[in-house]
Structure formats: C-alpha cells, structure tokens
C-alpha cells in the first residue's frame, strides 16, 4: 500500500513538472521528435546551405516550367508598356464559366482597391479616405488595351504593386476578361441612361 502511495506521489509530482511548460510562446513537448521532424529542408525553414539562410529560392533565371506561359517578354519601361498594349491579345474568349472564375479572382485580388464594380471605390480606407484608385470607366481607362492591363498587373503601375507573384498569367487574362466585361456592361448602361 505504502509503495503504491509513494509511486503515484512521485509520478504525479514528475508529471506536474512536465505540465509546468504551459507557455503560449512554446509549442509544447514532443515525444521522439525524430519521427516528426525530417532532416530535409521543410518549406520556409531557414537553412545554412543557402545565402541569407533563405530556403525559398526563386527558379534559376531563364528556366521555364512545363506549360508555363511565356508569351510575355516586355521590359518594364514606357516603351514596353506601349508595345504590350499594341501587340498582346487575350488568349481566352469570354464564356460564362471563365467570367465567373475571373470574377472570383477579381474579388480576391482587385476588388478591395478597385471596387466591387470597378468604379475605383474599394473598401480599403486610409484614415477614412479611400485609396486613390482610378475608375475603369474614366477617359484614360475605358478603352485601355488588354495588353496594357496585363502589363500593369504583371509589373504594377503607379501606386499599384506587381501582382505577378500572386496571380498566375492565365488568371491575369481571366481577370482581364472580367474587367473588359464590366466595362462593356457599364458602357451599355451609360448609353441606355443617355437614350432615356
């Protein structure tokens, strides 16, 4: 009896010591972590193998992945912008499915600044002021060539940063399909209100 008493007392005290590590800053205890943690480099983990310990490396310059979109090699200059506008054409044609997909992507990546309807009234505010974003329907943008749009999403334009790392080239074209459709709808509604 006395032995049971002693053993349970000791294990209890020992376990209490273990549980004392209830700290939000620490993930907690691991039993045999060799089964959990691989010596291979896990995504985003630092590694001494690489410069600055960054293991998330960009692809080697000039490599092209299979199926990668390669139709875009304009330099990030004013000339490149004009050339892209003159030469690039959207490889997709609008279908209801593609427009729905474009809308989904537009709502994720564009709408908070450019507005749900593309009028430049996004919901992001800075000290109660809306972001200075142009409307898709103003004089400079209502007939903007698709190539220039693609260029702007890829490299960024004025305050807008490059979204190339977030939106794949195919998705960029699908978003442009949707924006062109928004502009078409807006122009149609303008003419109907004007004729009324």
């Amino acid at each position: 009896m006395k032995r049971i008493y002693n053993i349970s007392f000791l294990t209890g005290a020992g376990l209490m010591l273990l549980s004392a590590c209830g700290d939000k800053q620490s993930p907690g205890l691991e039993y045999m972590p060799d089964m959990y943690r691989t010596p291979a480099i896990v995504a985003y983990s630092p590694s001494t193998v690489y410069k600055d310990s960054v293991s998330a490396l960009p692809p080697v310059t000039g490599t092209v992945a299979r199926g990668q979109y390669v139709d875009f090699n304009y330099p990030n200059t004013n000339e490149g912008y004009e050339a892209a506008g003159a030469e690039l054409k959207n490889p997709f044609t609008p279908t209801p499915e593609l427009l729905a997909y474009g809308k989904e992507e537009f709502m994720t990546y564009c709408a908070h600044c450019h507005g749900e309807h593309g009028d430049g009234n996004g919901w992001l505010k800075i000290k109660g002021d809306k972001f200075p974003v142009p409307s898709y329907f103003d004089e400079t943008h209502k007939d903007l060539p698709e190539g220039k749009m693609f260029f702007s999403i890829t490299y960024g334009k004025n305050l807008m940063g490059s979204h190339a790392s977030q939106v794949s080239p195919e998705d960029r074209w699908k978003i442009i399909l949707y924006i062109k459709n928004l502009q078409k709808e807006h122009a149609a509604s303008e003419t109907t209100t004007a004729s009324n």
């Binding site: 273990l18 549980s19 205890l29």
Partner: peptide
C-alpha cells in the same frame, strides 16, 4: 496526489499537440 495525477494524464495526452 489525485490532482497531480489527473493533471499529469492530460499533460501526457498533450505531448505533440500544439
């Protein structure tokens, strides 16, 4: 004794759970 054993049991269950 009872308290520390119960607490210890839950601590053991939490090993590897974050």
């Amino acid at each position: 004794m009872i308290w520390s054993n119960v607490k210890g049991w839950y601590t053991l269950k939490d090993i590897g759970v974050y």
